[in-house]
Computed example of a mutant assay.
Amino acid sequence: MTSVETSTTSMPDRGMDEVSDRLLASATRLSRNAMTEIDWSQPMDPNHYGCSPEWSTLYGTDYWDELTHEQRVRLTRHEFASIMNIGIWFEMILQELILRDQYLGAYHRPEFQFALTEIADECRHSIMFAKASEKMVGTSYRPSRAIGRLGKVFQYTARGAVSYAGILVAEEILDVFQRGCMRDDRVLPFIRTINEIHVLEESRHMKYAREQVRESVAGMSAAKRNFCAVYTSLGAMEIVSNLVQPQAYADAGLDAERALAERRTNKHFHAMVRSNCTHLMAFLDEVGLLTPMARKNYRRVHMI
């Protein structure tokens, strides 16, 4: 037999192991812990925002122009708390997808070890977001029951490329908001630190998800690829649409109905999302997951 025939690990598997080894080494060197790094007892400066004003869903609207500085600060704090809470929601979905994928995996392989490292990271991120929400606004924001049920459907039905493409899109969406705010001195210092930690550690997770997607779509039929593309885009639509919950506007003291109406037509916010999703769209196009129907769905939520 040739060496290829006697090998117990396929070429794609070895490729994933090499990537996983590098990511494990990165996690060992660079992981951070917000629970010990942040002094959660420090008071919040009343002038600091929860996110950069330009990333508020209402920035650039008539409603924003009517708000006082104090109202704008309060709005951005509730908006970003909602974004973090929706982040917790889809990070819990993500953890279940990865656990299911690795349930009877090859436990000795680096891929399995990094998968569990990612789950551990996501647990810490969710605790970090929960702690930040407690400190900043003292409440939680969850998707509606209907969207929560759809999330369960995705948990139970997503497989292979759909699973990891969904993970990638969800992580990229949150990454977009955090990169835009993590070095802005107008933002609360502890929120900037949270953004830095999450962006750093999610970069490993997104690298892992991209490699999993590339491996999953290799040799996939056109029909299956089209299904995967559309299913992923539908998930992205729900995530983007639910990032800032209506209750967040009400809790900030705004008219929630008017805020939602102005958000829907806010060209500034749409342009911010679109310009920061170009890298994600390029990757999906590269692997054949930016089909005409998927493109149409991404356009509906201004990701393209």
Rank of each mutant, 00 (worst) to 15 (best):
K296M: 15
Q247A: 15
G180S: 12
N226R: 13
A250K: 11
I38C: 10
Q71N: 08
A236N: 11
Q247F: 08
A259C: 12
A81K: 00
Q178C: 03
T265I: 11
R210N: 04
I83E: 02
D65N: 09
L174C: 02
N47L: 15
V169R: 02
L23A: 00
E5Q: 09
A165N: 06
I119G: 01
M281G: 06
H69S: 04
E118F: 05
P246D: 08
C51I: 05
L260E: 13
Y249T: 01
F269Y: 15
R225M: 13
S241C: 10
T68I: 12
A25Y: 09
Q178W: 03
H270V: 00
R14C: 01
K207D: 00
E54C: 05
T232Q: 12
P143S: 10
L290M: 13
R77N: 04
R183G: 06
D101Q: 12
R299D: 07
D13C: 11
L280G: 01
R14T: 12
N297E: 09
S3M: 15
R214S: 06
S140W: 02
Y298V: 00
L168C: 04
E286F: 14
A294T: 07
R300L: 12
E202W: 02
I98A: 07
A158W: 11
E91C: 04
R274T: 05
V187F: 02
G87N: 08
L23W: 04
L24G: 00
R186H: 05
V240Q: 00
R14W: 13
M303E: 10
H198V: 03
T36F: 06
C181G: 12
E262F: 11
V4G: 01
M136L: 11
P143M: 04
A27D: 13
C181Q: 09
H69L: 06
V73R: 01
Q178M: 09
P110C: 07
M220W: 10
R225L: 09
M1W: 09
D255Q: 03
V273R: 05
A271E: 15
D184H: 04
D45W: 06
G151A: 14
R258L: 08
D175Y: 02
I119H: 00
N85F: 01
A25H: 13
P46N: 15
D21Q: 11
L200N: 07
A27G: 12
A165F: 03
L58G: 04
G180F: 01
A158F: 15
T291P: 02
D13N: 07
R295C: 10
E238M: 15
T28M: 05
R295V: 11
T6C: 06
T8L: 09
